[in-house]
Design a binder for these strands. Structure first.
Lengths: 330, 330
DNA sequence: CGCCACGATGTTTACGCAAACATCGTGAGT
DNA sequence: ACTCACGATGTTTGCGTAAACATCGTGGCG
């Protein structure tokens, strides 16, 4: 910076003003400084900037895994929105979803150059970790229930699940089976709860629950069981991957979809339209979730506020070819 | 830090020594300092540290999109490896794959707190952008051909493609059709080139090329064309998503897989085993690619060297149920 | 008994930048 | 002509840390 100042024949303060786009610099001087910066290949040192300003213009994202579409899409949207606001995103991977690991990530966070954190994770893993959070770091939680301790942004899981069940009932199915996500997942719990409520509201009896672990493979295993149930004409899978495995199991057992069994998924992953048959599913707007997460943390950072509300992003039912009226009604 | 020093009754320098694990501090004193740090909730300020030390302990990752499995898995492995080495990872999303956008990302990089960069991107997008790279930033390129300008880590695309073709020929197929990736992609080009070479080496005539854009939807469209070709008994799809669409198209047109047509993919995405039928494919070890990327940049950072070599990560053929001998040979 | 070496700790300084304050010159108003 | 206000620019200072150097005390050795 001093070099630039010397070349341009000004003081370093003027260079600073130019580099930050502050007013009060004569146009001609500004041009001279810009030329000098270019000539010397000057780059402001972000460490010094951060030290002086007291913030880092960086958001940390803590997430357990990038193997689920949802987390990835959310992350992508976060990165894009953050970039648009002049913020960088640093990734804090948590290898194993244990409280120890999470606590470790949070404590590393303290030394990390981060103004705010977005946590994409089941919150029960956070419980004991929260204490080690540096006091000035703002938090928004996605994909979880944080009670009133943190701000939360999430898909309207319940609404989406209700729509899915409703759709199958409207087609005439007597009831709807549910291929649920892992028990530890709050998102899975909410989808399951909403499925049950919607059935009960319609006066139907919820069939026994079948659990998977989000993977296609677990969907396949569950599908082999469901294929045995003759009275099973409609299944609501808690995500598209499991629905994929389910489709394969049903196909192997000679149960046609949608003629014999209707299947509906959740997420609307890009491949869902290419399943056999193309999958009717509940679309999640991960991009919107990511955007609102960034909005949320930046609002907290800028206004030094502490939000606690929950923001729900609506879902949308995408009708494809995997659902139809039950055999009796055709 | 000054507060900690006061509470512990030592100088700030001693606090610094403790916080960096330096020797030459009496054990008793160390404990006193640690206690004071804990009591006050002291966190070293990473901006000041970076300013003083001159590096950031951070690796930037520039990638065009997180919508392909490969990029995501690579990113995940990078983040994990980097964390193990005490480095953070900051994400630099490039919204649109134009040279302007890429150049923008690279220039933002200059102001970013980053010691090294891993670029997961087609390199032709880099060409004109390279000039604006800050001189001290080390680079490793994944998923591309960077000539001898940068260090490169990549999957052995050619080897994987050869294995795929070889496998189909060994089953007795007369020739192998190819559903290629987008023309702009170097990875796609290499797979295509290897496919052609392997066929020619076996004295077969390469059928006309069909292009997709990596998406399942494009695979479906291509599949509709291929289903018309009666002499098409084996297809090598350049990735699993396109293979998925291909399977659907073949199924819709009444061509059974693998009885009438064999299909092989590339990537081995987690869902590949749940396709209908389970997909034979070429497994890419993205985790290894990510790890080697981190190794590469860190070696450069630490030894201040400039690597230019190319590291190839081997692939592995995963046999499932989508390939079989051609109809004539059954 | 005195000196020195060495371990333990303290003091000074600079990293690069930008806020706060200081200064300079010019044109408008009286 | 003289003041004053204001725009343009310069000077000083400190952000939190750690390297370099300085100091202090203790035990061993001649």
């Amino acid at each position: 910076m001093a070099d630039v100042a010397r070349v341009a024949g000004v003081s370093s303060q003027t260079v600073s003003r130019v580099s930050n786009g502050f007013p009060g610099v004569h146009e001609e001087t500004r041009q001279r400084v810009l030329a000098a910066m270019k000539e010397l290949g000057y780059r402001p040192n972000s460490a010094a900037r951060a030290l002086k300003r007291g913030d880092f213009r960086t958001i940390g994202v803590i997430t357990f895994t990038l193997s689920t579409t949802g987390n990835v899409r959310t992350l992508e949207a976060i990165a894009t929105s953050a970039a648009a606001e002049g913020y960088a995103v640093t990734l804090l991977p948590v290898a194993v979803p244990t409280q120890d690991e999470v606590r470790g990530a949070f404590s590393r966070l303290g030394e990390l150059a981060v103004d705010a954190v977005i946590v994409i994770m089941e919150v029960h893993l956070l419980d004991s970790a929260r204490l080690s959070l540096p006091p000035h770091v703002k938090v928004v939680v996605a994909d979880s229930d944080a009670g009133d301790r943190y701000a939360v942004v999430d898909t309207d899981q319940a609404g989406g699940a209700r729509d899915a069940v409703r759709h199958l009932l409207d087609l005439g199915h007597e009831t709807v089976w549910h291929l649920a996500g892992p028990e530890g997942s709050y998102a899975a719990q909410r989808r399951t709860a909403a499925w049950r409520e919607e059935l009960e509201r319609a006066g139907r009896v919820p069939p026994p629950l079948v659990h998977g672990d989000w993977s296609a493979e677990s969907g396949y295993r569950a599908g082999l069981q469901l294929a045995e149930q003759d009275d099973c004409t409609a299944v609501f899978a808690a995500n598209d991957q499991m629905a994929l495995g389910l489709l394969r199991a049903l196909h192997e057992r000679g149960r046609r979809v949608p003629q014999d069994v209707s299947v509906i998924g959740f997420d609307d992953i890009p491949e869902a339209g290419s399943f056999l048959p193309p999958l009717t599913t509940v679309h999640q707007d991960f991009a919107e979730v990511g955007r609102r997460c960034v909005d949320g943390v930046l609002r907290q950072v800028r206004e030094n506020a502490t939000d606690h509300g929950t923001t729900l992003v609506p879902t949308r039912l995408v009708l494809r070819d995997s659902t139809a009226p039950p055999p009796g009604l055709r």
